[in-house]
Design a protein around this nucleic acid. Structure first.
Length: 198
DNA sequence: CAAACGATTTTCT
DNA sequence: GAAAATCGTTTGG
């Protein structure tokens, strides 16, 4: 197993990074509890031109400033007051690109995931969705800004074969224009662990 | 300081 | 298929 290094995230083509993250293993280790899962679905948010991005138009606030940091850190954001979204910040400093992890296939620590989700075994797709994938791994807003090359959150390349990648429009875009339908959502074809297609 | 809203999920009909 | 749950961030007064 090899942990992905900072150079991976510093590259400038966020779409390529989003696709390459598919099949990688997202790992967390908080307070001695370790969980991990294969990334099955991602979504790219690219900079100030992207209407769907929090950094659209160059917005720079307390919440979004972490997107302007150097690639290789986490951006965790609470949505609808309920769900934690886990993003990977990419690109060099001052360019607000990020990749949202939308779905994982649970690998290790599944019993912890079930406890966090308050489920027995009722949900067949434990990590299929941006909010619940983060919840499975125990990621909360307090983990915003953590380095992905540290010892609490990291991503490994275990050489898992990916196969075909399906591109589609992003979800939750409540505006009109080209960025509403641009295919910046990527998922592993045929995976049962991705969130449902629209 | 108050008000509106969101990169969603779950549950009920 | 539709509606509710729920709170930090953002925006306006």
């Amino acid at each position: 197993m090899s942990k992905i290094q900072k150079e991976f995230y510093l590259r400038t083509d966020t779409l390529v990074i989003a696709k390459e993250l598919l099949g990688k293993v997202l790992c967390t280790s908080f307070r001695g509890i370790s969980t991990s899962g294969i990334i099955c679905e991602t979504e790219a948010y690219c900079g100030t031109e992207d209407r769907g991005s929090h950094a659209f138009g160059g917005r720079f606030t307390e919440r979004t400033k972490i997107m302007y940091a150097e690639g290789g850190v986490s951006y965790v954001y609470l949505c609808y007051g309920i769900h934690h979204m886990f993003n990977v910040v990419t690109h060099v400093e001052a360019v607000p690109h990020a990749v949202l992890v939308r779905a994982i296939q649970p690998l290790e620590g599944i019993e912890h995931m079930l406890r966090r989700r308050k489920k027995k075994e009722s949900t067949p797709v434990l990590g299929a969705g941006p909010g619940i994938a983060a919840e499975c791994l125990g990621i909360k807003t307090k983990h915003n800004g953590l380095s992905l090359t540290g010892s609490e959150i990291w991503i490994e390349d275990r050489g898992i074969p990916v196969g075909d990648i399906v591109e589609s429009a992003r979800v939750g875009m409540s505006f009109e224009g080209p960025y509403k339908t641009i295919p910046w959502r990527f998922r592993i074809a045929g995976s049962a662990y991705t969130s449902r297609a629209k």
